[in-house]
Write a protein that binds this DNA or RNA. Sequence first.
RNA 1: GCUUCCGUAGUUAAAUGGAUAUAACAAGCCCCUCCUAAGGGCUAGUUAUGGGUUCGAUUCCCGUCGGGAGUACCA
Length: 562
Amino acid sequence: MDYRAYIAARIQAGGLSREEIAEAITVPPDPSLGDYALPCFKFAKALRKSPAAIAEELAAQYPADSVIESVAALNGYLNFRVNRAGLAEETLLSIEKQGSEYGSSDMGGGKVVCIDYSSVNIAKPFHIGHLSTTVLGGSLYRIFNFLGYRAVGINHLGDYGTQFGKLIAAYKHWGDREEVQKGGIHAINALYVRFNNEATEEMEREAREYFRLIESGDAEANALFEWFKELTLAYVEKIYERLHITFDSYAGERFYTDKMQPVIDELEEKGLLTESQGAKIVDLEPYGMPPCLILRSDGASLYATRDLAAAIYRKKTYDFEKCLYVVAYQQNLHFKQVFKVLELMGKDWAKDLVHVAYGMVSLEEGAMSTRKGKVVWLEDVISRCVEKAYTVIAEKNPSLENKERVAEQVGVGAVVFGALYNNKIKDIVFSYDKALNFDGETSVYVQYTCARASSVLFKAREAGIARTDALLPPCDAEFELVKALAAFPECVVSAAKNYEPSVVARFAVDAAQKFNKFYIECKILQAETEAQRAFRLRLTEATLTVLKNALTLLGIGVPEKM
RNA sequence: GCUUCCGUAGUUAAAUGGAUAUAACAAGCCCCUCCUAAGGGCUAGUUAUGGGUUCGAUUCCCGUCGGGAGUACCA
């Protein structure tokens, strides 16, 4: 039931449409005021009356019924109280019927949303800075699928550039096949770092030559490159598995090597390409932006050139309704330029390209720097969180089976949640202190709440208490919980609309807080009456379902016990 | 310089233009003969600054201050 529409249909005020009234209906800051409220200030001018008077009048006229039980005017607000049992019944039935699908919808109608995220660079291990794009993208992928879209996850590999020439040169000078095979990506990265620190003029020249060899299809150079790529992918896939991240495509920059020329031709045809300082550019001066570089003065393509080709390819291949780029705000200008160039090329779908920008990660001692060794590797953060989880479990619940498995869910969950809980645009200063804190507004809190609920339900089953569709008018704590659960579907929609998984993360904590208040205030198994116990068990089960759905959208597992 | 983002308790943050600005962490104090204390309760403490728009601004606009990012051949 859409309560806003229901209320709006029963109100006539100042010639406003029902939609406008429904839109204006809010939720009061304090539940003791009511469940819904209509601020009457907007009507004051048209009706030439004070908001307070209008509210009084509307309150007197409003036909209370079995859905909206009472109406009261206060401070220019019209406050509505819904029938608690009615809302509870509707919400519980809907959760019970839909189960793990509760909160999903078909609003996407099967339309495609491409999501470009994580985008690993060959030969570069993940540090903590790669976490945001990976888990934000991974969560958006799930959220859009949940809402009936067809999400296409794209890992736009960073597999093109002169750095790979450098890498091969470094390997040729200092590398050892066995060591690299054994050391994997960190061994490769060490070679690259060493090159940047120690390379001579001569080696720089070699690096450029190796890059040329890769480009011209030289067998040996390509074999080395492919080997580095394999080692990189083997490494990231392990991490993706732990984070529950998947992709539908690994088409990276190299994939577009042969797809750039047509774009350049098209730019030329459309008269957008001009020469400046020896380079080919698209002039964006009229739009207040620096030029978009398409070809360097030596004829080589650039980042923007490949992104243009990639966007066109994706539109052609997937016919997306939207294409999201989950990339740090550092690249705001780059995407503004690329999107603008596509618009100038007459691609009407350029408006469907969205740069989902997020904040930067630094360390307490400042910006990360691989060269200076100021770096926090992602796998280290994950292992430390999992270890901490294991330690806590061993201490608090020594008899728990599957300690490793639970520790993995808890530890990984904490890492993921830490990156998804706040607005994505916020910068993050990483610290182990914060990462390892499992108290308060964390995934651990939500998981713990789930474990409590599971435990109650388990004990009920053990005692042979059957599931029922018992319903009672909820008390305050019960009703606050019901309202929280009822809000989940619109939370998911809001998360998708704003490309903001934090909405779901915040929902999970809020619902968990409401459950814990209920859990403390209302005895479930030892309720006073059987009907009360049955209703509370029903509410507990529904809470568990919804919290699971929320955490699943974030890519976080839910242990039954912990 | 220009462009752009950000500025809320000691800290990290929340708040489609709405009522007394909301949580968590840290601090102090309480609560396990009772469904998991990774929990609950209590105390104390916040919108950088000056204008403007509005019945009403943390939110929108302009300025100032402070911080981040970007600003032509890296990605």
